[in-house]
Amino acid sequence: MFEGPVQRLIDEMARLPGIGQKTAQRLAFHLLSVEEADARRLAAAIGDMRDQVSVCERCFNVASGDLCGICRDTRRDQSILCVVERPQDIVVVERSQEFRGLYHVLGGSLSPINGIGPGQLRIGELTDRIGREEIAEIIVATNPTIEGDATAMYLARELKPLGVRVTRLASGLPVGGDLDYADELTLGRALAGRMEL
């Protein structure tokens, strides 16, 4: 145990993902040794983030106003929605530069073990959007896990009756890889999702 304020910072940081007691200790003493202004800037950045960041009213991405940058961009295709589990996933899809539509953040995936059912996800908000906006296609980009798959299936069952096209990201071979190195599982999925040439 260290002096009260030091230990308090260590305990706070040790609660962050990926940071254990030892790392928390190192960070705390590092912050104690740097210029005071540097440490205060970090504290202010955390405070500012909490003060100034909001959730986009439309897609639930992180935003700094009522709407996020993507929803404000009128050049984007308003008829196609990509559904993701978390805001971080938007960044990944954006990096591909292949998608020019809008997003919808569910806030997780179905997981009864963790008490997460359809009511805990933003699925009602999604059906509202389909009723309100001119949406023709929903691309489901949940993770290829048991929970992500189940969520995708649930969305398909709920949304198809509303008259929109519901698609799921294909899973298959990594680009630039040799067929030799593909594991049996990936290859199996790629075979199941093969395309006509």
């Binding site: 048991i146 189940a150 649930y154 069952r157």
Partner: peptide, 23 residues
Amino acid sequence: RQRNAFLKSGLRDDTTLSVWDAR
């Protein structure tokens, strides 16, 4: 385990159950 957790919750929702059935 997910399907059992859903059943244990006592909720009756055929759409959710059918999704776990399928998976």
